[in-house]
């Protein structure tokens, strides 16, 4: 779509959406948010790019194979959960501890975050695979 207003706005808005998606992702630890919704938001940003530019340009901007993105995400999620097998505790058991980090102060480190990272990647991957599959043939 060759629309100057849309292009200009997209250039400004996409980074903001991307940042917001990351914010949502981390907020999901204690507040509403999380990997699923963050992933959808990030996918939304890329879809906006797809609408404004075309598939080829977006591929050049973000040279990622989305199918591999799904695989990586799933590996993250399953790998994190299967880590519990090494300690002979039930599958999906999570571990956490509180640490003091410079600048951030008291922070909780949680294996659930790794799981959620997987979810995030899978959601981005799947959404874009679907949209590319339909969009490509036009």
């Amino acid at each position: 779509m060759n629309n100057v207003i849309l292009r200009t706005i997209t250039a400004v808005v996409v980074p903001i959406i991307a940042l917001f998606s990351i914010q949502l992702f981390f907020a999901g630890h204690y507040y509403p948010g999380g990997g699923f919704i963050g992933g959808l938001m990030a996918a939304g940003a890329i879809v906006l790019l797809l609408i404004v530019f075309d598939i080829r340009t977006v591929r050049k901007m973000i040279p990622i194979n989305y199918q591999w993105l799904i695989g990586t995400g799933l590996l993250f999620a399953v790998g994190t959960s299967a880590g519990s097998l090494l300690f002979n505790v039930p599958f999906l058991t999570h571990a956490y501890r509180y640490v003091h980090l410079p600048l951030l102060g008291k922070t909780s480190l949680h294996t659930a975050v790794l799981f959620d990272t997987g979810v995030y990647l899978v959601v981005v991957g799947i959404t874009l695979v679907i949209i590319e599959t339909i969009g490509e043939s036009d």
């Binding site: 695989g71 097998l85 599958f91």
Partner: peptide, 24 residues
Amino acid sequence: MINLLLLPILIPLVTAILLIFFKD
């Protein structure tokens, strides 16, 4: 190994994921 009953689910799951990377 208390997770034994999970293995018949987990093994195909991990395999399915790994197979995504070997498409060609």
